[in-house]
Design a protein around this nucleic acid. Structure first.
Lengths: 243, 243
DNA sequence: GCTTTAGTACTTACATCGTAAGGCAATTCG
DNA sequence: CGAATTGCCTTACGATGTAAGTACTAAAGC
């Protein structure tokens, strides 16, 4: 048959499926990603995909793990604050590229190796920076909650470009009873509708505030360990509000 | 007719629909909430619901707005920090009661009146506490991102009870190559597997760190306005990292 | 070379979903 | 009492994830 020369006949792979799925999710949104549509994009019937992924949940897990590999790992040569800051900005950029990730909660239950490696390096960066195990856990929880939550709001509010912001703000003001929500109105007019406003700029502002507080908590913890060893010793206690 | 006495014959209402939908989402998860199932729970056919809600998206929006009304509004009599802290704890408690809320990004695009009132009061609390418009916006973004993000991770990781935590941690350790992810292993063993650990306890720790950083930012902003009026005057600039 | 075997892709089919269209009954208004 | 309006129900359609069974393709053994 002529199949050998006419069709390239690239065999289906899990990697190829994941890549195309990520592309498709980007183009049509995660809701527009269907097994049939994905099959079509790969020149294949929907059911053929099931030879390489267990089910759609497995596909989504794989997609999340694949994009986690795009995040810049914290560098060993940087001090903890710059290392964490860099990877957080990179993390945020990834979530901006792939807005559907923050919506997929299930994937956290079954983390892939990329995800685990990432988490391990982040925790390690804190530990090497002098954080106790407990404080490293707090820091990890705080930072990642912020990053995820910010991405969630970013995905919801369509304030990506300046025009979009203006549009949304105006629509909001139009239907908004200004008298009933005066502070919301003030913030919209005097902040959101200012020229050059983009919600995504808020990210690093909040991030730096978070890093400030972690730096202070670390200083407090290290100071406390000099006076009283209970802070560093009972690693699973709460060293921040020990009073 | 006998209808008055035999059958209670409570007529369908948007409120009754929303309440039952919230219950159902709590019992079966948001994925288990279907129009047919909801109708059945109300003793009614699925299509009858469409006389009171436009479509499923409208239903979900209504549900989100209804549970937003459960959040304790920041009190005017408290100072900003305690007021925000109280409402944040209340917010978090609501998201724990209704874990599906954080997953519904779409609802932020079409906020209901409860949601708007809530946001207005939060921003107002910051403003009355002395925050500039810009800093209030940053604070609002930071705090709500953290709360949402934390709830997202809480919903994903099933670490609600102590037993669950232990279970998950052990399962993780079992399949985890300890040598490959040493820091993750350390954190799991020395922190998560400690007696009495519950991930939800991390919430107030991170929250207090965030509030610390906002307090510092406010002090910095107010200190700067004494030396130089540009901080308070140009409200849409970035008063935190002005250097 | 031919035959066997395993794995990959295709076909068909089903349960379940949101919801469009139209019918019927009960309640409200004249 | 009759007319109209509202609210609920019936039926039906297209789309989705995926179970089950079939056919083809490519490597392994003789």
């Amino acid at each position: 048959m002529a199949r050998a020369e006419t069709a390239p006949r690239v065999p289906l792979t899990r990697e190829r499926i994941l890549h195309t799925a990520i592309e498709l999710a980007g183009a049509r949104g995660i809701g527009g990603l269907t097994m049939r549509g994905l099959g079509e994009a790969l020149g294949v019937e929907a059911m053929s995909l099931y030879n390489h992924v267990a089910n759609k949940a497995d596909l989504l897990n794989g997609m999340v793990d694949a994009v986690f590999a795009e995040i810049e790992l914290p560098s060993h040569s940087d001090d903890w604050r710059t290392a964490i800051r860099k990877r957080s900005v990179s993390f945020h950029a990834m979530l901006t590229r792939h807005p559907w990730v923050s919506g997929l909660r299930d994937s956290a239950t079954q983390p892939g190796t990329s995800t685990l490696r990432h988490h391990d390096r982040v925790i390690g960066t804190f530990r090497n920076g002098g954080f106790s195990v407990a404080l490293a856990a707090h820091a990890f929880s705080l930072i990642d909650s912020y990053i995820y939550g910010f991405a969630l709001q970013e995905a919801a509010l369509p304030l990506a470009t300046e025009e979009q912001s203006a549009e949304v703000a105006e629509a909001m003001m139009a239907q908004l009873a200004v008298a009933e929500f005066p502070y919301l109105a003030e913030l919209t007019v005097e902040h959101v509708m200012q020229p050059g406003y983009q919600y995504s700029n808020e990210f690093t502002i909040g991030l730096d505030l978070v890093l400030d507080s972690l730096e202070a908590a670390l200083a407090k913890e290290q100071g406390a360990s000099g006076v009283d060893d209970s802070g560093a010793g009972r690693a699973h206690s709460m060293p921040i509000h020990s009073e």
